[in-house]
Amino acid sequence: MARALASRMGLSALKRKQTKSFSVRIVTMDAEMEFSCEVKWKGKDLFDLVCRTVGLRESWFFGLQYNIKDTVAWLKMDKKVLDHDVCKEEPITFNFLAKFYPENAEEELVQEITQHLFFLQVKKEILDEEIYCPPEASVLLASYAVQAKYGDYDPTAHKPGFLAREELLPKRVINLYQMTPEMWEERIAAWYAEHRGRTRDEAEMEYLKIAQDLEMYGVNYFFIRNKKGTSLLLGVDALGLHIYDPQNKLTPKISFPWNEIRNISYSDKEFAIKPLDKKIEVFKFNSSKLRVNKLILQLCIGNHDLFMRRRRGDSLEVQQMKSQAREEKARKQMERQRL
């Protein structure tokens, strides 16, 4: 109660401020920045400012995330920034992160900055073990991450021990083997040497092409209970909705592809997935909180929208971006050959 009151007082104090502005800190995967926002700004005003500052045009994959109690939420574009349930202590902090994932990174991520932000986010999720990654894929991914960071392998510059300070593998993977750090480095370096000639963005794209085949890539998981009260996990991703046994986040028990879903709705805590095929039973479940329901529905709407957009073909904006990216790539390749 006291906290809620203090938070409300904080908000009214902020709104009373003569300058009519407040400061926000934006944390991206590779930078931190501070902005002064006007009190009347909506989520979209701040989001657009961040995208412009970062130089990102493929903004539809991203969002501004904030922490709320024990969960996360995303800033709504059409709602005032200060009307969100954010901690009002300045600077108000938001994480600029990918909210939606592409079905195919190579086809859909056009700009280098988009690919780079995805690469950094996915790499962190793998190293933090939020995405399960088998040992052999961890080693191959590490070798592409090293290529992206260090450029071509050069035995005269890259002496043994050059990777000693890098975090390259999930701890779980390291613990599965009786291998010294030197032995791991030797293996990663051997594969790194194979990637000669790959530019940073090519190596990062190879990384994403491998990572996107990992079962947990791009899936948002939520604890739910079915009508019988059984604990289950709901997964929301680019392809649809998936129901998992809580002991197995890799293989769904049932999947509902977006194009086979007629309607998704909730009232209070009860969620209902209505399949297109009327012969298939409506799947009803309860999530833990109303706030979680809102987040699930937001992710469903956004992912469904992107799913449909992909099947309609590229917009003019994306066609232009792709043609610019192709020209830029060709120019860089010419430059490299000349050198």
Partner: peptide, 27 residues
Amino acid sequence: AGPKFGPYQKALREIRNSLLPFANETG
């Protein structure tokens, strides 16, 4: 979509085999 890990399958198999002799018994 093609087979899982499509063109990387050979590399992944090689890495898996090279790690095998060092696997913990509990692993």
